[in-house]
Nucleic acid binder design. Structure first.
Lengths: 119, 119
DNA sequence: TTAGTATATGAGCAGTTGCTCAAATGATAA
DNA sequence: TTATCATTTGAGCAACTGCTCATATACTAA
């Protein structure tokens, strides 16, 4: 998908220059995929509830499970995904892991999204 | 899922007060679902490429298909989804439909997301 | 050590998603 | 009207996702 092929494309192109310019300004494919992957983290009800909860307070796995009414295993799977994309981190206190947001981007993204759906 | 049931929950709760407070501050379930649904629009490589292209210029379906190297049908399906969530609109010029972003939220969301993955 | 608590992980399955293909619709031109 | 172009739409299928269940790991306390 990294190869640019204007002429071999089967599709009709009405505005060749527009398409050429769009290609020129396009982000790297890897970055586009990273973007889409990041947004996937927010694209699920359970993960969204987790993130919304962690905006308020750090919480442990079993509390999140109680809050969302799903299993601790399910929460743990989702937290792993959120950890992978550096949206959350945790700190250990004995056997308990407290999860919190890693930076303010989660907050910003949700704020803008809320603006969109509320207007 | 709209019913709040603290006591009937099977899960252990370590910090009851934290969970109770999180419930109290929680967004309405419908709004949480709307949020997740909105983010789904950004959570796919093809739709992300479409949105990134439309940040630069309005474009018609067949140009987008050429740009993404996928079928016009596939583009049309994705545009319908983006229209549904009011992220894009179109204007007709003869037989051609030109799509553009509906407001600046797309731009903002992508800007913050890029900030996150680039740091 | 052993038992119990808190969390993580892998396999597997049901539900969802993004594509292709075929057919329909809407607009233009002859 | 008919032919063609630009786009939309529905059905169907392969790939992906989020859950459950069983098991494993990490820590604490006795």
């Amino acid at each position: 998908m990294e190869e640019i092929k204007i002429d071999s494309c089967q599709c009709r192109i009405i505005h060749e220059e527009l398409v050429a310019e769009a290609r020129k300004n396009a982000l790297a494919t890897s970055e586009v995929e990273e973007l889409a992957y990041l947004f996937k983290a927010f694209a699920d009800g359970s993960r969204m509830k987790i993130l919304l909860a962690l905006i308020q307070n750090e919480m442990c796995v079993c509390d999140l499970a109680a809050l969302l009414s799903i299993s601790e295993s399910a929460v743990s799977h989702q937290l792993r995904l959120l950890r992978t994309m550096r949206l959350v981190t945790n700190r250990r206190e004995g056997a308990v892991l407290y999860y919190r947001l890693n930076d303010d981007h989660v907050n910003e993204l949700i704020r803008v999204a809320l603006e969109h759906i509320r207007e």
